[in-house]
Design a binder for these strands. Sequence first.
DNA 1: CGTTTGACGCCGA
DNA 2: ATCGGCGCCAAAC
Length: 120
Amino acid sequence: MNTPKEQADSQRNFFQDVHEVVRLIPPGRVSTYGAIAHYLGARHGARMVGYALIAAVPARGLEQVPAQRVVNRNGLLTGRHHFATPTAMQETLEAEGVRVADDQVQDFKKVFWDPAQELI
DNA sequence: CGTTTGACGCCGA
DNA sequence: ATCGGCGCCAAAC
């Protein structure tokens, strides 16, 4: 299982895995890169999670993967600039019931959704 | 092939 | 509590 193809597949699987986890995030809830990375095994830096999301969001308004529900550990909308519009992330979150102020999720502790804890 | 950056997180001062 | 630096992995130049 050391074939180059398998390694490449493993990496690709990681991206797909991130998409799946993010897609499982219920509306009105938000998760963090670190939580997802940890859920996947913490083997990948939290950065890779965000990196995977870039590939997940074609930046064309496709909401297949609610990447807006994924924020950093501080509950800050760090990736808002990657959306179709800088406010799309906040707008979407507020539309789902998540209060956002100053690019920061309010009651982040309440809306926080941990896959390793909630998803089991 | 080597260097740099990136949707982050944690540790130390 | 706040600020800075280092680390992880991969892709892009």
